[in-house]
Design a protein around this nucleic acid. Structure first.
Lengths: 107, 107
DNA sequence: TAGCTAATTAAATAATTTTCTAAAATAAAT
DNA sequence: ATTTATTTTAGAAAATTATTTAATTAGCTA
């Protein structure tokens, strides 16, 4: 049995956060990703594997190459978690809700 | 020299996330926090120390007791990081920005 | 002051994570 | 068919993190 990989554990590593940053711009192969780091390709491959296990990235097979894509849905889980604390510092959402309520009323 | 504690590393641990959840509701002493977990007080104390090092919580000394407070400012750093990916799934902020631009123009 | 309570610090061990080298798998190219 | 390119997997070592027990610090109270 596989241990379910935790998304917070996945983004704890700075290299993995950097990989996510790259993949958010464009899908890339492990080789191309590895070029941006000092570590070996195997090490980067391992990081990608961890990101894959928690579904922060998705594979697209193309011949012998594998393109990795950023998966926003999964990142939203982090967003949702941090959102519960948003009320402590943010008043923008209040403004938004007021606005949305207003245009809702108009209908 | 102290190694600067990383906030992403701090929230990677589920126990520490749970501690933050408690402290967001109310300031608490280490003893009171520890009652919510199976680990020893020393272990919880260590977790609190890690949260303190990265400033996710702040101390308030009261005699021999220490009240720990949640620090929203630091949590916002996580929020800011995840916000760069928000555009991939959220359109609310677009609506908000349009609205804010509109009321700005009126002035 | 002596004893009690709240909390941290220290030291040791256990567990996990990271990284590397080497080997294997697979597809494309010659 | 052999070689080359891309990537993953395996195994071991190194580094980091988590947890426990024991010791220490400091405030409170009788």
């Amino acid at each position: 049995m596989e241990v379910r990989r935790d998304i917070f554990q996945a983004i704890a590593d700075p290299t993995r956060r950097a990989i996510l940053g790259l993949l958010a711009l464009q899908a890339m192969t492990p080789g191309a990703i590895a070029e941006n780091f000092d570590s070996t390709r195997q090490t980067i491959s391992k990081h990608i594997q961890i990101l894959t296990e928690c579904q922060l990235v998705k594979q697209e097979l193309k011949g012998r190459e594998i393109y990795y894509h950023f998966n926003p849905k999964k990142m939203k889980e982090v967003s949702d978690w941090v959102d519960q604390y948003r009320k402590f510092w943010d008043n923008k959402l209040d403004i938004l809700e007021t606005y949305l309520a207003k245009i809702q009323k108009k209908k």
